[in-house]
Amino acid sequence: MILYRTVRVIAAMYFRTILKLRIEGAEHVPVDGPLLLVMNHQSHLDPLLVNTYCPRLVFTMTKSSAFRNRLMRWIEPRVGAFPTRRYQVDPQSVRVALRFLSEGKAVGIFPEGERSWDAQLNPLRPGTVRLLLKAGVPVIPCGISGTYEAWPRWGRMKWFTMGPARPRVTIRYGKPLHFGKNDDRATREAALPEATKQVEEAILALMTG
């Protein structure tokens, strides 16, 4: 992952110049072993910032349309992205996520499934929560705030803003949540509502600080 590491170094310097960036709770992210990072999604900036500043490399579930362009198709896997088709159930993306976890990697997921239109947390996709319940690895909730102001879904990003006018962005990692390994489908379905509530509450608390 030479490209990924190189991009992280360059991007880390660049984002510090255009954003007032604050990162809290990084000590909650284990330095090794499998983990699932679940974050709210307000902007295209979110994966860029998390993949840049997370204390370890994160392999992020990314919408499949990001792979349509030939250049992006070459770059995306090299910076930890793997595709998921959001318009249908995509068992391959779940298999890949579980494979990365079995290799002790960190997998990043945006459980809302899309960017928010108004900075509020959208309902979490049940499929994502089922994956958390099946994987049985520590789940690190992460709340991102300020990226909506910097680059909302309906607007454009100012890539060269500097000085005091820079948008303030905060990334907060929370304490790990543990759901155990629920191999049985019936157990997973029974645990789904409570797990969804826990993850939602954790992310919301981190978004608002």
Binding site: S64, F67, P77, P83, R85, D90, Q92, V96, R99
Partner: peptide, 12 residues
């Protein structure tokens, strides 16, 4: 989408 000899996923 292939990556390191394995299937990483699919796109439309």
């Amino acid at each position: 989408v292939w990556w390191r000899g394995g299937v990483l996923g699919f796109f439309e």
